[in-house]
C-alpha cells in the first residue's frame, strides 16, 4: 500500500477555534475528488469523514493538518493535530460521549457522534492520541470496488 502510486496529493491547514471556516477544507476536498471523477458515494464518505475531522480540529486543537491522498483504488485522509489529545480513546469513540463546549453545540455538533461517524463511514480507520500533545486519525475509503 505504501508503494502505491498516487494520482493526487495535497494538504490543508486547519486553525483551531476558527469556527466560521469549519468545513471549508472538507468542501474543498469534495470538489477536488469530484473533479477527478471519483464515484459520488466515495466522494460523499470522504467529505463526511474529512468534515467531522475538521470540526474536531477546530473544536479541540490549536491547529492541525488534513492530508488528502488519492490512489488508484482508494482515498486516504490523514489528520494530525496539536491539541489536548484524548486520554481515553475507547470512551471518546462511544456514541453520545462528548466534551463539547456550548460554542460547539451551537453549531449543531458536540452530540458525541463525530468519531463514531468517522469510523462508520471509513473502510479502514485508525486513531492514535497522546494526551497534552494531539490526535492523529487515518481514514481509508475504497473507491474502486
Amino acid at each position: 500500500m505504501a508503494d502505491e502510486p498516487l494520482i493526487y496529493e495535497n494538504q490543508f491547514n486547519v486553525q483551531g477555534g476558527n469556527f466560521s471556516d469549519a468545513g471549508k477544507v472538507a468542501s474543498h476536498i469534495k470538489a477536488i475528488l469530484k473533479g477527478f471523477g471519483i464515484p459520488s458515494e466515495a466522494v460523499r464518505k470522504t467529505a463526511l469523514v474529512a468534515y467531522e475531522s475538521e470540526i474536531n480540529i477546530v473544536s479541540y486543537a490549536r491547529k492541525g493538518v488534513i492530508h488528502l491522498r488519492l490512489a488508484p483504488d482508494q482515498i486516504v485522509i490523514e489528520t494530525i493535530d496539536e491539541g489536548s489529545g484524548i486520554a481515553d480513546i475507547e470512551l471518546a469513540m462511544q456514541e453520545g460521549y462528548s466534551t463539547a463546549t456550548d460554542k460547539i453545540r451551537e453549531m449543531g455538533f458536540g452530540a458525541g457522534m463525530g468519531l463514531a461517524n468517522i469510523r462508520n463511514f471509513s473502510d479502514i480507520f485508525h486513531i492514535s492520541s497522546e494526551p497534552g500533545k494531539g490526535t492523529s486519525l487515518k481514514m481509508i475509503i475504497k473507491w474502486r470496488p
Partner: peptide, 17 residues
C-alpha cells in the same frame, strides 16, 4: 429540515449533496 441557522448547516448540506 432544521432549526439551525449557522453556516455549518450549509457546509453539512454541501458535504451530503
Amino acid at each position: 429540515l432544521t432549526g439551525l441557522t449557522n453556516p455549518q448547516v450549509i457546509r453539512t448540506a454541501d458535504v451530503l449533496d
